[in-house]
Computed example of a mutant assay.
Amino acid sequence: MNRVVHPIEVESYRRMRARLDTSHFPPLTRAVVERVVHSAADLDYAGDLVMDEADLEKAHAALHAGAPVVVDVAMVGAGITRRETVCRLKDAESGPGLTRSAHAIRLAHEQVGPGALWVIGNAPTALEELLTLDADPALVIGLPVGFVGAVESKAALRESGLPAVSNVSEKGGSAVAAAALNALLYHPTSAEEKL
């Protein structure tokens, strides 16, 4: 099913590409970079994001094969179109040494098991908790925002060796995390490209 793109989005991408050359990126990396930059109107993301094309290819295949998508907060889920998401924040509770966001990640892990795509755009503690679990993810989009724990949690994600999209700076948030996942959703599969 092809997505109908509004003329405003077409013009926005044209203007972005006039200011930012993304032609040197491989296809899925380019899609993620462009959608994140577009979502934040922040060209600096092009040099801030960290990802591997081979990881994105595997995640793209898993996503289009129906792998579950888990989000840390409802706002991330609201930004992901064309796909249902799992968010357990409403069911979670905080406790000694455990934030509500971290507990929600535990609950989601119990629900979906291995092979999910995890999209974390809000809480560094959610990303930290995911790294303690045996989640065997198809991909972790770890783009939490903030001045406390965000940089460290994203560095830990990169050091974990898990397939991931992250960034180096404090920047991030629900909109950019959702945009990274949407880039994979919107990118055609090989079957769609042949149509």
Score class of each variant (00 low, 15 high):
V5T: 15
H6K: 11
I8W: 14
I8T: 15
E11F: 10
E11H: 07
R17T: 10
R17K: 14
R17N: 11
A18Y: 01
L20F: 04
D21I: 07
D21S: 12
D21P: 06
D21W: 01
T22D: 00
H24L: 07
F25T: 00
P27A: 11
L28I: 05
L28V: 04
T29K: 00
R30Y: 00
R30S: 01
V33S: 00
E34G: 03
R35L: 07
V36H: 00
H38Y: 15
A41F: 09
G47H: 11
D48S: 00
D48Q: 05
L49Y: 02
V50T: 14
M51L: 14
E53I: 05
D55Y: 08
D55P: 01
L56R: 01
K58R: 15
K58W: 02
A59G: 11
H60T: 03
A61C: 07
L63Y: 08
A65F: 04
G66W: 07
P68H: 08
V69Y: 06
V70W: 02
D72A: 06
V73M: 06
V73F: 05
M75Q: 13
A78L: 14
I80L: 15
E84R: 15
T85Y: 13
V86L: 13
C87V: 12
R88N: 06
A92E: 04
A92K: 03
G95H: 12
G95T: 10
P96C: 03
G97C: 12
L98A: 07
H103T: 02
A104N: 12
I105C: 03
R106E: 15
L107F: 09
L107C: 09
L107A: 05
L107E: 05
A108R: 02
H109D: 13
H109I: 01
E110T: 06
E110R: 13
Q111S: 13
V112Q: 00
V112S: 02
G113T: 10
G113Q: 10
P114G: 10
G115S: 11
G115K: 12
A116M: 11
L117C: 03
L117A: 03
W118T: 10
I120W: 06
G121V: 07
A123G: 10
P124A: 05
T125F: 07
T125G: 11
E129F: 01
E129W: 02
E129P: 00
L131C: 11
D134W: 04
A135H: 14
P137E: 03
A138H: 02
V140L: 10
I141Q: 07
G142L: 08
G142C: 11
G142M: 07
L143E: 04
V145P: 08
G146K: 05
F147L: 15
F147H: 03
A150D: 04
V151Y: 00
S153N: 10
R158P: 01
S160H: 06
S160F: 05
G161W: 08
L162C: 11
A164T: 03
N167L: 04
N167W: 03
S169D: 04
S169W: 09
E170C: 08
G172E: 04
G172P: 09
A175W: 00
V176C: 12
V176R: 02
A177G: 03
A178P: 12
A179I: 07
L185G: 04
H187F: 15
H187V: 01
H187T: 15
P188M: 02
P188T: 08
E192L: 15
E192D: 09
E193Q: 14
